[in-house]
Design a binder for these strands. Structure first.
Lengths: 224, 224
DNA sequence: ATTTTATGCGTACTAATTACACAAAAATAA
DNA sequence: TTATTTTTGTGTAATTAGTACGCATAAAAT
């Protein structure tokens, strides 16, 4: 009885570039849902942790190196998988822009980044999983600085602002936003400036992780 | 390989009475950890959902009827169970004061409520699970009105206040707290009054779930 | 009858959030 | 070369939310 439940992991991996949020999908090579798009994932091996399983599957199927990973939710409804009783522990990951190169291999004919507003039909209950992950991302950037995990090490302030407006789906006052972030002192302003196309060049910033953990230890939390 | 991973559920069930938070534990009847205290839980059957498994185990082991249940986290570290590879989906539950009567049966020699500051040694990694659940509860009452799930249907305002000071571990200003809750209009003041011991009798209140869901739909969230 | 304990209500003070406009630096077009 | 467009950078006033605090009332205990 007990033994016939199988355990998988699935990952919802988000990337960000130039005002669009992407999610990583793989094209299934085998039945069920052969040739359908799905979240990267697969069966957990007996001698690996859940996180290891996610990282292994991501590496095998997409070659993408994850930058931030957290557990999302465990999906265990009856009938969510035609192969029988399969319970899946879903994870939620973020990658930096330079991780956008893909390498298809073992389990997937193809891996691709999709604009989150232009997703294809997804296999299994992956649509539901994706939706929960997106909600988590949107909620989480308002109280934890995980947005930085989607940006390069050095970035102009406008990139951060754009990321927030994109994720929150609404305009935010540029001056108040900067005031807020600046008051937290989690950004280091670098001496470098960057000019991208026309317009006044902006200073580059980097995220001060040390300062952030210190704040967190003191119980002070971020809030946008 | 895949088949040998086993799946369990565990539940951290909290109760509240007269200024103390309790957690429900069962005494293990069988090896491993025979006679040790543990969180109620057990193997998931092939033809039941995870939630059904939790409710079945709770009913079998303790007879407690749960009032609020949400998934907490899935624990899958290697070596967390001496029986082999066992992954456990942990849930987090709340019961109302009238659910304090217990009934021991199938899998447990005994079920008991423990003061959360006076826990015995726990089996497996249940201490870790309990800790995470308590943190979740403490965090969650500040932004969602789950505190009501721990109180009777009708309660004097002071009960709510006491619950918050207990859970948050700090004093809160009675007047400001009442102002805040009142402004949300999620409480209905009843005509009844209750007098418990000395002191001026207080009005009874009940939680207005309808109003709460309406607020939530409008995107207004609770914050203490 | 007096004291103790708990509830019920209001106002002044402080901190946080929001709204809002113009100057400077660079690229492009005239 | 000059004018125009685009983007970055900065400050202050108005409003809103949060915090601190005191006294009157109702019942039980002495």
């Amino acid at each position: 009885m007990k033994k016939s439940i199988q355990l998988t992991v699935d990952a919802v991996v988000f990337g960000y570039e130039a005002g669009t949020i992407f999610v990583l999908l793989v094209k299934r090579k085998y039945e069920p849902y052969k040739n359908a798009w799905a979240l990267p994932g697969g069966f957990v091996l007996e001698n690996e942790s859940l996180e290891q399983a996610v990282e292994r599957e991501l590496s095998e199927e997409t070659g993408v190196k994850i930058n931030y990973l957290e557990q999302l939710y465990t999906f265990g409804d009856l009938g969510r998988d035609p192969r029988g009783r399969v319970v899946s522990v879903a994870y939620f990951g973020l990658v930096k822009p330079n991780a956008f190169q893909l390498r298809a291999s073992t389990d997937a004919a193809l891996a691709e980044w999709f604009h989150i507003d232009k997703l294809p039909k997804l296999a299994f209950d992956h649509k539901k999983i994706f939706k929960m992950a997106l909600e988590r991302l949107q909620a989480k950037i308002t109280y934890e600085p995980i947005g930085f995990e989607l940006l390069d090490k050095k970035f102009p302030f406008s990139d951060l602002e754009k990321l927030y407006t994109t994720l929150l789906g609404r305009e935010i006052d540029r001056r108040n936003f900067k005031k807020k972030i600046t008051s937290l002192k989690v950004l280091d302003e670098l001496d470098e400036k960057v000019s991208k196309g026309r317009g006044r060049p902006g200073s580059l910033f980097s995220f001060n992780q040390k300062r952030y953990f210190q704040l967190k230890k003191e119980g002070i939390i971020f809030e946008i």
